[in-house]
Design a binder for these strands. Structure first.
Lengths: 337, 337
DNA sequence: CTGAAAGCGCTAACAA
DNA sequence: TTGTTAGCGCTTTCAG
């Protein structure tokens, strides 16, 4: 039904190759013939069939974005960054949501990709070695966003430094008893929270502060669980004067707990979060901002660059710096020492 | 590099057509030849090239999902519903995010679709008449999710009824002075909030309650603005004893305001929200639940059905019912009448 | 039941 | 500079 390149050629009285050249902005077309062709294209309301072009060139002009759980705000933000970049390119974004481990495995196995996408962006999906190998072996370039593997291109935030920065901020305010509250670190699902913990404990040790295991608390995911655990933590003997939370959700749960047991913030307790989600500003939470949207954009751009110059060994590892956003939930402890 | 259908044919000592038949589960293949072919496919690790198939059949096995502002949780939920359905189909999901009105217009104009997608899902993007016409004229089937147009297939929530239900709930508790707080209704961007308002005022009138314009408050988007406006509303002469908020974000802002000026909930003030977002449960908010994920799933299924049986006039308008979730922010007013 | 052949709409090499 | 031709890898007649 829609006009084809042949219709245009006939109408413009030129060869089909010429039309193709015009479409592809080839310089070797005389200007008047170009005009003829353009006119015919206009008249016929012709748009080149992308599929045919794909078959012909071998490129799909499609990049696959794989991410887990479309629910988490942070993944979505990264996806936005990706989409922003891709929108300005010729590439379409095809979305693969992984909602359970078996989907995930299947995805890595099939790389359903096979000639379906020109490149893959994996968001927050750290591959194991076997999966990484499969990725490197496949001819489709891939980049990991918010995940790391030595053999792959990655862009990820400097979580260790985030942990350091948050902890240092608290110490500089005069805190000595600083707790860390996170999801369970023993599961393989939260590498970033483990890294933040690493930064935290590194600073604690360097500053020769008391490193009390009771100040390290783990809770199930979610604000409510954080609240419950925080309440416990704050009512023990010799409670901390500050808590570094592995996420803003955790931090907000802590705020709720403090509120519940009548502690004032930041007088009785300082709290630092992580992520700088939308609500953080609203509750005036001091937190670590990692540049989520930017991470997606950077990853997408990296992939686009790889696609553009396949041979050129690209700068393939981008560590994104994080920064402290000081708001109202941190201050000096009430009673020193 | 990857094996083609021809390689398989050669290896299996059959014609290329036969291989195609095997791939497509055609019944007219003798079982032993089928086995031969299958073996060859296995041996060569052959996967049919989807692009070639697309060109050949004219189908793209791709459906385009267009939605505005990837940020809003409710859109994301709907997208999840779509993705859930599409994941189990043969269709890929290609994502188009509209971040500004010009992108939107451009999208409707180009329908970039032209032979790129087999169908379109528009989420929360009410088209005007011209755009709708373009959609109906284009040969690609489309369905609107969370939007309505008489000429198009739509699935959308019963917002008017949501307004009714919330208001009735409050009246049944004994409230007479019921306010409605929403975004600005005069802009074309919040048709649903307008409909909820319609349901609200309908019930107010039917119950012959005082319909005081001062009880209708509009705020800029966001929790903070809701909080500010709510504070104003609650400190006027003769304040309302209950507020119906057009969204949970608004409602939570109202809760904050009440807290700030020392009103107790639901003793001094009842609040009903809308959407039942995640935080609603956390703050124990009574609210209206619209089935977001389901709306996406339904829309996607509808489109798939249209694709499967193009001629059959499908049930093309699905109004999703909403329901009241009673939690802790509503109760009888303290002083009657 | 099966093989051969003709496209799908485009790009790219090759002549002219 | 331009037209012609040969594919890209598959589906689908059409014979046989």
């Amino acid at each position: 039904m829609p006009a084809t390149i042949r219709d245009v050629a006939r109408k413009a009285n030129v060869g089909i190759g010429t039309v193709s050249r015009v479409i592809n902005d080839s310089p070797s077309v005389r200007d008047d013939t170009r005009q003829k062709v353009l006119a015919a294209i206009e008249a016929l309301d012709f748009t080149p069939n992308p599929i045919a072009r794909r078959l012909s060139t071998g490129q799909t002009f499609t990049i696959g974005v794989v991410l887990p759980y479309l629910t988490l705000p942070s993944y979505i933000e990264r996806l936005r960054g990706v989409q922003n970049i891709l929108a300005d390119s010729n590439y379409d974004l095809v979305l693969f949501d992984i909602e359970n481990p078996s989907q995930r495995d299947e995805y890595f196995k099939n790389l359903s990709l096979k000639s379906k996408v020109d490149g893959v962006l994996l968001i927050s999906l750290p591959p194991n070695d076997e999966q990484a190998k499969r990725l490197t072996n496949s001819s489709t370039p891939a980049v990991l966003i918010d995940a790391y593997h030595p053999d792959l291109c990655c862009v990820y935030p400097d979580d260790v430094d985030g942990g350091r920065i948050a902890t240092r901020h608290l110490i500089e305010l005069g805190h000595q008893k600083i707790a860390y509250l996170s999801d369970y670190l023993s599961t393989p699902f939260h590498p970033s929270m483990r890294l933040r913990y690493q930064g935290y404990s590194e600073v604690i040790k360097k500053e020769k502060l008391e490193f009390d295991p009771k100040y390290h608390v783990e809770a199930d995911r979610g604000r409510l669980n954080a609240r419950i655990m925080a309440k416990k933590l704050l009512t023990i003997d010799d409670p901390p004067t500050a808590i570094f939370a592995a996420s803003d959700s955790h931090a907000i749960g802590i705020l709720d707990a403090a509120n519940e047991i009548g502690m004032s913030i930041p007088g009785d307790l300082s709290v630092v979060g992580y992520d700088d989600i939308r609500d953080a500003a609203y509750v005036n939470l001091t937190t670590i901002n990692q540049h989520l949207v930017q991470s997606g954009a950077l990853g997408a751009q990296m992939l686009l660059d790889m696609l553009a110059e396949p041979d050129k060994k690209n700068q393939c590892n981008q560590i994104l710096s994080v920064n402290l956003v000081i708001r109202g939930t941190t201050g000096p402890p009430q009673q020193r020492n």
